[in-house]
Nucleic acid binder design. Sequence first.
DNA 1: AAAAGACTCAACCGCGCTGTA
DNA 2: CTACAGCGCGGTTGAGTCTTT
Length: 312
Amino acid sequence: MRNPSSSSSARSRSTPATPCCGKVGIKRGPWTPEEDEILANYIHKDGEGRWRTLPKRAGLLRCGKSCRLRWMNYLRPSVKRGRIAPDEEDLILRLHRLLGNRWSLIAGRIPGRTDNEIKNYWNTHLSKKLIRQGIDPKTHKPLYPNPNSSQISNIPPIQNSNPSSFPLEENARFDRAIATRVIDNFPLTNLDQFPNQVINDDGAENRPSGDGFNKGSVLQSRHEQNEEEDYTGYENEDTFSLFLDSLINENVFMYQEQQQLQQPNNIPVPSGEPVISSSQAIHHGSSCEAEVSYSMAAFGEKDGVLNSHDLA
DNA sequence: AAAAGACTCAACCGCGCTGTA
DNA sequence: CTACAGCGCGGTTGAGTCTTT
């Protein structure tokens, strides 16, 4: 593993090293099965949070950050191991186009996947795949003047929600601006509170909580400290989920439409629907702008509709 | 079979944000 | 208002593994 003393970061430190990471005698590098067991047992018994003091309480010679990372990315029961499925890959592409490198947000929409895993997968697979397609992985814009000449992969280009009214490039800006604007109105910790809500067969939402999956630990621990206090972030989270789902589904819908036009023999195409089922029913056929209007109004935006001229 | 290069991904780092004293 | 603690995030590293020559 990486040599702990060999950080090549050129960034200057404005604050001293955090005590838990600067202590002598703190173990680094790969975790042993014994350490994993100690950490998992402790968290099952005492719960997540208070990471800085957790190693001492659990009897681990690790810093709190390392414990948190190990739990979040590897030991959590809900972490899904194994290869990224094609529909997950498709969803990552669409979410990245909307959100950029906000890996935790992207991970929050893909059950069982961690931000680290998605970030790694993006850097090692998807960015290269897009480059092979002639698409800039950062901007999702064509790298070359004539993108058709370089499209050699079978990954679908991200489609414009309304091709007749927006050129691709402008629509990408539109989507990203919407996402940014909405995200700015939703504290990220609220998103982390219930990022992977699932719709049961009966339509009821199931918010995973028993194992603390993806909970923002700040909110969690502070909420635990004052359980009488109502948590009031639900509406915002629901609204944001619906909104984000709408943007994703819009793309999925457009893509499927395009594939059906191109492939009259109905060759199956990947779909994100199993993951993002919460809002299918209301989003097909609705315009992106209408959804923005709904979402903005839902959290008190005075001028709810974000028009293309807002991007200027 | 061995060496070299490419790739993968767990882990680390620094920064910035939020809440509290 | 300020300082500090605690935490989460995105960027980056590098040992281990796989593939190619």
